[in-house]
Each structure stands twice: as structure tokens, then as C-alpha cells.
């Protein structure tokens, strides 16, 4: 049997660290995730640091002439990305823990280390 044919897809861990509107990297990261999802990649998303702020509901960035990032984020489950890992420490730091635009799985430091260990490739945005 051709070994390439049965080779599993690479597990890609995308680590997001940027706030939604202060830096275009946040949107560009989600754009990458959409593309990867469309190509049926094995993708895991981890929101840590300021990136947890991307998940807040009721954002209305038209006031600052930007597009709503949560609309793009909410499209990811349509492409089969259902696992949104969120750093519980970062949530605690900002005092937010519910009312998010996508379903989330809260993870602690140890669980996050595991995500890194289990990934084949890590992309940092």
C-alpha cells in the first residue's frame, strides 16, 4: 500500500495571541484558519493572551471602521472547526468567562502544554 495514501494529515496548532482590532494579525490568522479548514486540515485553535478578547460577543467595530471579527470566527464551525481552546488564565486576567461568539473549551497551563506536545506543526499569530 502506498504509505502516502494512508499518511494522516499533519496536526496543526494555531496559537492566537493578538487582540481583535489593535493588530491585523488577528484577522489574518482567522483568514488562514478558514483556508486551512476549507482544505480539510487537522486544525486546533488556541486563544491565549489578548486573543481571548476576540471571542467577546456584541462587538461593533464599525465605530472604528473595521469589520466584525466574530462574524468570521463564527464561520469556522461551518467548515468543521469546532474546537476552540481558550486559556483559562487569560480569561481570568480579563475577568471574562462566558458569552463568547463560538463554543469554547477552557484549558489550563498543563492542558495547553499538552496541545503543544501533540501538534506536528505550530503556527503563531
Amino acid at each position: 500500500m502506498n504509505s502516502n495514501a494512508i499518511k494522516a494529515r499533519k496536526k496543526v496548532l494555531v496559537i492566537l495571541t493578538q487582540s481583535p482590532y489593535g493588530n491585523a494579525l488577528s484577522r489574518e490568522a482567522i483568514d488562514y484558519c478558514l483556508a486551512a479548514a476549507a482544505f480539510e486540515q487537522d486544525l486546533t485553535l488556541l486563544f491565549t493572551g489578548d486573543a481571548v478578547l476576540q471571542l467577546i460577543n456584541d462587538q461593533n467595530p464599525s465605530t472604528i471602521n473595521q469589520k466584525d471579527l466574530t462574524k468570521t470566527l463564527s464561520a469556522l464551525p461551518i467548515y468543521g472547526i469546532n474546537q476552540f481552546y481558550v486559556d483559562s488564565n487569560a480569561l481570568e486576567q480579563y475577568g471574562i468567562d462566558n458569552d463568547f461568539c463560538v463554543p469554547t473549551i477552557k484549558v489550563d497551563v498543563k492542558e495547553i502544554s499538552e496541545l503543544l506536545v501533540n501538534a506536528d506543526t505550530i503556527l503563531n499569530f
Binding site: G49, N89, V109, I112, S113, L116
Partner: peptide
């Protein structure tokens, strides 16, 4: 410092 903090937290 938060960048190094994050790196160390998630290291194995």
C-alpha cells in the same frame, strides 16, 4: 514579560 511568561508556561 508576558511573552516569555507565556512561553515558559506552555513549555514541557
Amino acid at each position: 514579560p508576558s511573552i516569555m511568561e507565556r512561553c515558559l508556561n506552555f513549555s514541557s
